[in-house]
């Protein structure tokens, strides 16, 4: 495939998929270890009322109000989940289940009651994403990568996802030590003066922001898969958190690139006609990587039983 075809049609969707996958996989490491991985599911449901409210307030289908609405709903959901968990003294999974189903239901009611039928609030888009449509028409070949005029025509999702990824990376780098201690031993972390409640909330909010940015670009399937599959597979490859995070980035990137290529060309290789959904294929590849790691990973034995 030549650059004149690859750069405009495949480079940007592939990069956006890659950034989204890694931005979700990074916080996913901590969420999986804290048994909070379901938060990806929760956020994917609660953004619906946020988007509807944003539409009702602004009356338009524009990116920024919708993203702000979604982010607001995600943060509200996170606060509600924490509230339900603490006041009800129940496990986080149950609190998430209660909050996200209620908020999703409220979103459906809101959508039905308000006069949005005339507007195309695309739920399908939110679910599967439109990765394939994020093309870079101003590009003519590899030379465009250094051509300012062509660069101005880059899809805005690319920049948004890149900024989100940098933000997520900074949060984890900055709070690396405190996050590790409070994830392993919260009580001990508190005796050191680490504000574990605030830190935990910060982690979930960072995850929510990554999720919302990724929904807009690639849809919720990738988000849910990337929060769980790369970190879980990475855990099976190593017994050290530092390396686990490295592996999760590798797996997320591999799933994004391989999934995108397989979706675009796989059916053709098999003699089919049309490409399949890239988001669906990326999530599927992530699942396959997890399956392979579960079968062949060097650290797949549960440590529970003492070896000595």
């Amino acid at each position: 495939m030549s650059g004149s075809e690859f750069v405009p049609l495949s480079l940007t969707p592939m990069l956006i998929g890659l950034f989204a996958a890694v931005a979700c996989a990074l916080p996913g490491n901590y969420l999986v270890l804290r048994r909070q991985a379901l938060i990806g599911d929760a956020i994917s449901h609660v953004v619906l009322p946020g988007i509807v409210v944003a539409f009702l307030l602004t009356g338009m289908v524009a990116t920024w109000p919708m993203m702000l609405g979604a982010a607001g709903a995600a943060v509200l959901a996170v606060a509600l989940i924490e509230g339900v968990r603490r006041l009800g003294r129940i496990e986080p999974g149950a609190a998430m289940g209660v909050v996200f189903t209620s908020m999703f239901a409220a979103g459906v009611l809101l959508l039905e009651q308000s006069d949005t039928s005339s507007v195309h609030l695309d739920v399908e888009h939110a679910l599967y994403g439109n990765l394939e449509s994020l093309i870079w028409l101003d590009a003519t070949g590899w030379a465009s990568v250094i051509d300012p005029e062509a660069l101005a025509g880059l899809p805005p999702e690319l920049m948004r996802m890149a900024v989100t990824l940098v933000g997520v990376g900074l949060f984890i780098a900055l709070f690396w030590r405190a996050l590790k201690i409070s994830t392993f031993d919260e009580g001990f972390a508190r005796t050191l003066g680490i504000r574990t409640g605030v830190l935990g909330l910060g982690l979930v909010i960072v995850a929510a922001v990554a999720a919302v940015a990724a929904f807009d670009a690639v849809g919720s399937i990738i988000v849910i898969a990337m929060f769980i599959c790369p970190p879980a597979a990475a855990r099976l490859m190593t017994d050290r958190l530092e390396r686990q995070i490295g592996w999760s980035v590798v797996f997320a990137a591999l799933a994004a690139v391989l999934g995108y290529v397989l979706a675009g060309y796989g059916p053709l290789w098999l003699g089919g006609q049309d490409a399949v959904s890239a988001a669906g294929m990326i999530a599927t590849v992530a699942g396959l990587i997890l399956a392979l790691a579960a079968r062949f990973g060097p650290c797949r034995k549960r440590a529970g039983a003492p070896a000595v």
Binding site: K180, I181, T183, L241, R302
Partner: peptide, 22 residues
Amino acid sequence: SVDWDFPTRVIDVVMMGLYREL
């Protein structure tokens, strides 16, 4: 009170005791 399956080594756990210093 902790999950001993956490991906970390013995030395790393002891280093956590140096948090206030580091």
